[in-house]
Design a protein around this nucleic acid. Sequence first.
DNA 1: TAGTGGTCTAGACCACTGC
DNA 2: CAGTGGTCTAGACCACTAA
Lengths: 258, 258
Amino acid sequence: MSSLEPPKARYKQVADVLRDAIKRGDYPPGSTLPSQPELAREFGLNQSSISRAIAMLQAEGMIRTEHGRGSVVLDVPTVKRVRRIDKDYRTKPGGSSYAEELSKAGVKPRTDLVRCEAAIPPAEIAEVLQLGESDETLIRRRHMYADGKPVQIATSYIPMDVAGSVDIAMPDVGPSGMYARISERGFGPVRFTEDIEVRGAAEEEVTFLRIAPGQPVFAVLRTAFDAEDRPVETCLNILAALQWRLTYSWSQESTDDV
Amino acid sequence: MSSLEPPKARYKQVADVLRDAIKRGDYPPGSTLPSQPELAREFGLNQSSISRAIAMLQAEGMIRTEHGRGSVVLDVPTVKRVRRIDKDYRTKPGGSSYAEELSKAGVKPRTDLVRCEAAIPPAEIAEVLQLGESDETLIRRRHMYADGKPVQIATSYIPMDVAGSVDIAMPDVGPSGMYARISERGFGPVRFTEDIEVRGAAEEEVTFLRIAPGQPVFAVLRTAFDAEDRPVETCLNILAALQWRLTYSWSQESTDDV
DNA sequence: TAGTGGTCTAGACCACTGC
DNA sequence: CAGTGGTCTAGACCACTAA
C-alpha cells in the first residue's frame, strides 16, 4: 500500500492504483471492484473520496457502475480494431462485406436482425434521402458481434419505391446482396458518401456496446447514389469511438490539406 | 427559482438550470459563471453539490474551470463544421487546400507555423513512414484558425531524403505547393490513406482548441505514397471531435457494408 | 434483509489567481 | 490580500439489487 500523500489528490491516486490493477489483470473484464466501503477501509479514506475515484475511472471508460451491484470492469481492447474502406483501383469487384472483413481478421462475426419494417425515418435521414415528412422507408436494424462481443449497431434506410417490398431484406440478405437487389430494380449505386460524426453514446448504445455512459461513439452514415445521383440507400453505423480506427484509402491526384 | 425536489439529484437539476442558461445566452462564451459559493447560496445547497454540477457541465464540454479564476463558458458551435474529402472523378485537378475550403465557406482562415525543423519523429510516425529509430524527418507543425478561432493542429512529417532540405517548407508553402515540391524531386504521390482515431484530448490540445479536458478529439493521419508505394509524407490533424463532421465521397463499385 | 452505489451536508483547509 | 475552485471528512439517508 502506498502512502497517498499530497501534492496529488488522493482520489486521483486511488484511481491510479485501481487503473493499474485493472490493466494488470487483477480485475478482469466482467468482474467487479471491491465495494466502496471496503476500498475506503483499505485506503484509509472516506467513501466520498473513493466514489470520486470510481467516477473518474468511469469517465475514462474503464468501468461502469451498476447501482446496487457494484463497479464492473469493462473490456477495453488495448489495440483498436480497424474498419477499412478501400476505394482505389485495387478494390476487388464485389468488395468485402462486414462478415468477410471480420472473418479475414480471424474473428467470428454474427449479425442479429433486431428490426425490419416499413416506417417513417428520423428527420435527418429523410433529408439525406430527399424524402417528404410522411414518406416511409424500409428500416433494417442489425446488431453485430465479433467473437460474441457486441461491436456495432447498423440501421439502413431504403425508400419504399427502391426497396419494392419488405422482403428484399430477409434476415440473411447481406449487404452485397442488398446492393445487388437494388441494382436489379434499376437503382444501381455508383456514388457513395460517408459522414463521420462523434457524439456521446445514447442510452441504447451504452447498453448494447457495453461502454461507460458518456463515452464517445462514431456515427458513420454511408449513403449510396444511383446514376441519376438520387440517394437510394443510407446506413447508419454506431461504433465505440475509442475502440476503432477508421481507415480510408484511395488513389489519384489530390491535394486536400485539411 | 425552482424547487429542486427529488427524485432527480439536486446537482443534476442545478446542471440543467445552468446548461439552459448557457444555451439561452445568459452566459456568453468567454464569460464566467457565478462563483460556487454564490451559486450555493442561490440554490440553497452546499458548495459540494454545486461543484458536482459544475464538474458535470465540464464533462459535457460546455465549460472549463480555471483554478482561482472561475468557470468559463466555452464556445460550442451548435452546427458542426464539415471537413470534406472528395476522391471521385469530380475532384478538381489541384484539389482544394484547407485555406480554399474555408474561404469558400465564408470564414477567414489563418495558419501559424509553430514548428519547422528536422528531428526524429514519434515512433508511430516512424513506423508509418517505414523509417528506422534514428532517422530524422522534416517536421512542420501548424496551428490553424477560422475567423480567429482555433480549429486544428496539423503536423506533417517528411523523410529527409524526400524533403531534400528544410527550406522546402517555408512558412508560406501551402499543401499543394508541398506536394508539387515533392513531385519535382521525383516522389509524386499517387495513393493516399487516412486513418481516423478518437481519443481524449492531450494537455496541449485542450489549451489550443479551447475545449474542456477529457473531450474527444479526432486524430486524422493522412499518408501519401509514391508510385513505388513508398510513404513520402504523413500529416496528423487534430480537431475537436464534437465540433466536426468528416465526410468522404467516392465513386466506383463498392459493396462494403461495415 | 444485507450489501451495494448515489446523494447530500456542514465544515474545514488548501492552491491558485489577480489585485 | 480576498476570492476562486479543489479536496477531504464524518456522518447520514436513500435507492437499488440479489439472496
